[in-house]
Simulated scan of single mutants.
Amino acid sequence: MKDYPQIERNYARARDLMARNGNPTQWGSTFPRAEVVKDDIANHRTMLLVDTVGGHERILAQFAVCPGIDPTYVKINGAWLDNDSYVTIHRIASSGLVRHAARDCVEWCLKHYGNVRVDTHPNNKAMQHVLETCGFARCGLIQLLDRDEDTTRIAYQRHEW
């Protein structure tokens, strides 16, 4: 929890960056909600990409790794690569201190888990680029279950065989 204030600043930065780059609705002004972020931390789903400069640790990016079946992914307009066990990456945000931090988070997840699913908003061209350059397959479209509008997301998967 000591990192929570910086995590929140990174999410605020990500919301602003998405809005400035033509994607104002994916996270709007409130996502991810504080209770979700705190729950991720409490349940050890939050991962931090860090480095050390001048003896001080810096958070470069953060994301949530969610094991088990993601209810949002049960129904897909398309097809997943397989039905094997997987983890889902959610809520990636960078501090902006270094380039390619999101890619580094995704690659870490692939290295440690092997079978990874993730989704992003159709307007989030930056994340689509990261996923596609990391070798993810575009599997179809899913619908978020926790929203009433703007629910369509592009679903991706990569399975290191």
Rank of each mutant, 00 (worst) to 15 (best):
I59S: 09
V53H: 11
D51L: 03
G68C: 07
D84A: 13
A93T: 03
T88C: 08
H100S: 14
R91E: 02
L48K: 12
G96T: 08
V65K: 08
D70H: 07
V65T: 12
A101P: 10
G55N: 10
L81S: 04
S95I: 02
L60V: 06
G68F: 07
S85M: 03
A64S: 15
S85A: 15
G96P: 06
D70K: 03
R45G: 04
A61Q: 05
A61D: 04
K75G: 00
R58V: 10
M47I: 13
T52G: 00
W80H: 01
P67E: 12
P67M: 07
H44Y: 11
V74A: 12
A79R: 11
Y73H: 11
L48G: 05
P71A: 08
N83F: 01
C66K: 12
V98A: 07
T46N: 07
N83G: 13
F63Y: 14
V87A: 02
M47S: 06
K75L: 10
N83T: 13
G54T: 05
R91D: 02
L48Y: 11
D51S: 10
R45H: 14
G54M: 06
R58W: 10
A79D: 05
F63D: 02
R45N: 11
G78T: 05
N77D: 15
T72K: 00
P67V: 05
D70C: 10
M47Y: 14
I69T: 14
T52Q: 14
A93S: 13
R45V: 04
L49G: 06
H90V: 02
H100L: 08
T88H: 02
E57A: 11
V87F: 02
M47Q: 14
A64G: 06
P71V: 08
D84V: 02
R99M: 08
V74P: 00
D84L: 11
I89V: 15
G54H: 09
V87E: 02
I69V: 15
V53I: 14
H56T: 14
R58L: 11
T52K: 13
H100I: 00
P67A: 11
G55H: 08
D82Y: 01
E57D: 12
A93W: 01
Q62A: 13
S94W: 00
T88I: 04
Y73M: 04
R58D: 11
D82W: 01
G96W: 06
L48A: 10
I76F: 02
S94P: 03
G54F: 04
A79S: 11
G54C: 05
A93P: 03
V87P: 02
A61S: 14
G68H: 10
A93R: 01
V74I: 15
P67L: 08
W80R: 00
Y73E: 05
A64R: 03
G68R: 10
T52M: 12
I59V: 15
V53R: 14
A102M: 06
H56Q: 15
N83E: 13
R58C: 10
I69S: 12
S85Y: 01
S85C: 04
K75V: 12
V53Q: 13
D70A: 09
H56C: 08
A102S: 15
I69E: 15
N77G: 04
G54Q: 09
W80K: 01
Y86N: 01
R58A: 09
R45F: 11
H56W: 00
S85E: 13
V74K: 15
Y86I: 00
H44G: 14
P67T: 08
H90I: 01
W80M: 01
S95M: 03
V98D: 02
G55K: 09
V50L: 06
T72N: 14
P71C: 08
G78C: 06
